[in-house]
Design a protein around this nucleic acid. Structure first.
Lengths: 338, 338
DNA sequence: CTGAAAGCGCTTACAG
DNA sequence: CTGAAAGCGCTTACAG
């Protein structure tokens, strides 16, 4: 690694102090009334030496790194990957760089991740909080670290967040199924204390209740840390023990996909044997025969809002914005090819 | 943002110099023969004040940030998202943090991205290079920045890389189709100067040639920046003008998915109307009826190797490792549900 | 065994 | 209009 050129090198070459070089290169030549001739020579030297500012030194001095930390459950999950992409784009517009990490829905990993990001002095954090991490978020707030939660939130903590109207999402989806004629609708969700999951389950339950179908409520809750086994066992039990189930509603994208595999394994046809509503969409849903209906989240808006709010918090700390976005039901028709 | 506690605060509290605190907290109390009693008090104070080292200050002083930059084409693309996940995991094991960015296959974005990452003093870069960026890579090498290319490389540049044996991947896939009885095999690829794409096309061509099917070679090259239109036009033209085409081979995951949409639109059945071999796999392929065959890349190995090599380059700069990994053909059976 | 001091590469209040 | 100097929070050679 050969020595990088610094302000000092430019100063030496031009024969001025580093202060002047700093002013000019930061576009403050007007305010600081730097001589026109000097400005020109500094610019030229910087160009010739191909000067690149050392962001680390700058960060240390400015007490601001222009970096944001992004913690998602798993960057390999398409929903979070898309979210990350949007956040990356938006952050770039504001002159910020993104450091990311995956918590795997694990409290300890989340804590470790938050610590590394703080040690790297991120200016703020965008977090998809894992279950049981509310105390970690509270600690951040106590330290006055700008943070916005996305996708999930803790109702007991007063912190900025942007989430889906999860209750309404599944309420509407369930009503759609009921209106289409299904009565024995089962829901497949995660076992979780997180509000977004509880709300999704509640939306379904309330919709069933409103339609006097309370006795037909079936909720299967899969444990994150026993995903494979739980899914295989509980899902097939669900279907076998309840032959009358005529529709399935899934609480996340990953659950939807797993459900489809099971549906295929059991040679069930959608919608003849069982109707289907998934979460989040994706090529798998579009290419399925028939194309599958799903609850679509406004990922783009979610990403943009979370950055916008974070910038707001960074610039006027204290302000809290809590945004609830609406999902959209995507209803698919069967395309006949005969 | 309340003031964070620094080494100085601990030193003041204990009544020693910051040097001692630094030694102890970095586990050098033995080498530096710090008094046992002092060690204990420093540890206690650090604990009580909940000291967290400022990684930025440390980076500036050490001239090493323990950060690596990752540039992919698009983090929202599942292939790159998975690669990012593995790289994240591995980096963490080595005590490194990852900053990422998406180039969108765009020279200018790539250049801008490389610059921001360098200004942030990353210790090294893992890059999926976009077309036309070979000079950018050369510049990095000239500056002695540790870099390893992944997924793609430039044969004319002597730099560490880990890529797929692309030629063999499509050669084998084509032979598989031929051996299964298909003769009019068309390939759908990107228009690109990048070697990985050229090799994939060449593998196909050479396989056709070896089997005396040279006159049946059809290659469609889609332009990145006119993706939608190119795909729709050229693909339907390909099929319409060549009714005899009985098999399709796709050069990437994204192309495969687009191809499947077209196949469905045109009401073609796989494999009766046209056989299919895709790239990279994913739920869409597994859930398709019938399940689709594809060329599987060893993403896990790719990610792990790229970090391992980068660490090697960082620690003994000058060393160059070039790794070519083998893909695996995943052949699917039709599962009958009658 | 311990401390004073330099320095990483910047920015910026201050003095002139 | 310009420069000398302090300081961000660390690490580490040097002196004692």
């Amino acid at each position: 690694m050969q020595k990088r050129v610094s302000l000092k090198d430019i100063a030496a070459k031009v024969g001025v102090s580093t202060a002047l070089v700093s002013y000019v290169l930061n576009g403050q030549e007007k305010e600081k009334r730097v001589g026109a001739e000097v400005v020109k020579r500094i610019r030229k030297a910087a160009e010739e030496l191909n000067y690149q500012p050392n962001q680390i030194a700058r960060s240390l001095r400015m007490q601001s790194t222009k970096t944001i930390g992004l913690i998602v459950a798993d960057i390999a999950n398409p929903f979070f990957a898309q979210l990350a992409r949007i956040i990356e784009n938006e952050a770039t517009k504001y002159g910020y760089t993104v450091i990311f990490g995956s918590s795997d829905e694990d409290e300890l990993k989340s804590e470790a991740l938050i610590n590394t990001l703080l040690n790297r002095q991120v200016d703020g954090l965008i977090i998809v909080p894992a279950g049981g991490t509310s105390s970690q978020i509270e600690t951040l707030l106590k330290k006055r670290i700008p943070v916005v939660l996305v996708d999930r939130y803790f109702p007991e903590i007063s912190v900025s967040h942007v989430v889906l109207d999860n209750y309404k999402a599944t309420y509407d989806a369930t009503c759609h199924l009921i209106n289409t004629g299904y009565k024995n609708i089962a829901m497949v969700a995660y076992k979780s204390n997180l509000t977004h999951m509880k709300d999704r389950i509640m939306g379904y339950k309330e919709a069933m209740k409103s339609n006097n179908l309370l006795e037909n409520v079936h909720v299967t809750e899969i444990r994150h840390n026993h995903y494979e086994t739980d899914f295989n066992i509980t899902f097939s039990r669900l279907i076998k023990n309840n032959k009358e189930i005529d529709a399935l509603l899934f609480a996340t994208s990953v659950l939807s996909i797993s459900g489809l595999f099971q549906i295929q394994n059991q040679c069930l046809k959608i919608p003849e044997d069982v109707a289907f509503i998934g979460f989040d969409g994706g090529a798998s849903f579009d290419l399925y025969q028939p194309p599958l209906s799903f609850i679509q989240q406004p990922i783009d808006e979610m990403g943009k809002e979370s950055i916008r709010i974070l910038m707001d918090v960074i610039n006027n700390s204290g302000k809290i914005s809590q945004v609830k976005l609406q999902s959209k039901m995507i209803i698919r028709d069967i395309k006949e090819c005969n």
